[in-house]
Amino acid sequence: MNRVKGIIRTHLTDRLGWIFLPWIILSSSFACNLIIAGLSGEEFYTGGLASIYVYMTILGIMIVAQTYPFIIGFGARRKDYFLGTAATIAIVSAVFTLMLCVLAVIEVQSGGWGVNLHFFNLPYLSEGSAIERIWIQFSLMTNLVFIGFFFSCIYRKFGRNGMFLFFVALSVVLSFSTYFITIANGWDEIFNWLSGISAVHLATGLFVLTLVYLGLSYGLLRRATV
């Protein structure tokens, strides 16, 4: 357990990458939108919140390349690296999600920051009870970071060629499924089914997917070298 804590502390030593940068990016996006909303004077919906999710995905992609050779080189077990890194992602995502939800509440209370701006409080994402909202945003964020993490684990284990093969295989699978859905006239059904699902259910589905990436990532890292 101590070793896992050590890995978490090692990750969080890079406060710029883990803490400051995502919020600097989000704040600048927020500032721009605030100015636009103030100038337009009308109710204003924006997707600026996506900036932090995009950043976290990139962070997930970068983590392994940045820290795996360092931490394994300093004599950590792969298992501890995996657990520590996953825990760091989970902790940071949880804190960020809470902060985003608090900001969403403030946004509603302040009448969209006084200028009717919808930045944090968005339809679909901010539905249901407080717990449900937190769950939705948390699943979304962890899902994105762990997708990035999974990709970089493939790269670490199999290198550039492995990455290339993986994406070729993925695109073949996607093309075939698209083709079969089309010839079976299945698109309407799929859209109907999707629109019937609530954000909370979708979030839970995403979380299950996240667990799958996590399992696969661990399998890859255990056999990866420095």
């Binding site: 890079d14 990458g17 940045q66 360092f70 004599g75």
Partner: peptide, 14 residues
């Protein structure tokens, strides 16, 4: 065990 190697990598922000 401690292995100091010429090619040791460090995180960019460290």
């Amino acid at each position: 065990t401690c292995f100091i190697k010429e090619s040791q990598k460090y995180p960019d922000n460290f």
